[in-house]
Amino acid sequence: MKMLRAGLALGAVCLLQMLLGLHLPAVARRCDLFSIFAVYIALTRTQRPALILGSSAGLAQDALADTILGLNGFKKTLLAYLVGTLGSLFMLNQTVPRFGILFATAFFEPLTDLGLALAMGQQFVFPSPWDLLQRGLGNGVVGLLAFWIAARLPS
């Protein structure tokens, strides 16, 4: 049942991200709903489902966006694992730590992209700090809002 709910949530994330891309592209560029989903799952579920759902979210993002298939799957899997690990070591159920985690994902992803690009011999342009700051803030704000909504959904 939990997996079904998670699957529905992932479908909703896909739909919302597409709608944002169509109608609010500026917002879509500054927040990554798939990363927020992976962080949420990693903080609220055990690591096995978190890894599976995180990887699924990344692959869904790859399928929707014009990116290399597996790139976001790899990043979201790693993100879910790291956040899950941090969540098991630290108390991350408060607003500020969660904001910090969501903000950090904006930096984590380009760093992972850079590592993968180097490993695969591909060219990669690292985003500017301003862009990263905007993405971090966008992820943090939208993520906290999503967490707040999710907490109020019927279980």
């Binding site: 990887s55 790859d62 290399i68 298939l69 597996g70 790139l71 899950g84 993968l116």
Partner: peptide, 20 residues
């Protein structure tokens, strides 16, 4: 539950293979 290393390895490998 923090030791799903095999699953992590499999998922990362799967995504790497897809990328490659």
């Amino acid at each position: 539950q923090r030791k799903p290393y095999l699953l992590l390895f499999l998922l990362l490998s799967l995504n790497l293979i897809l990328m490659a």
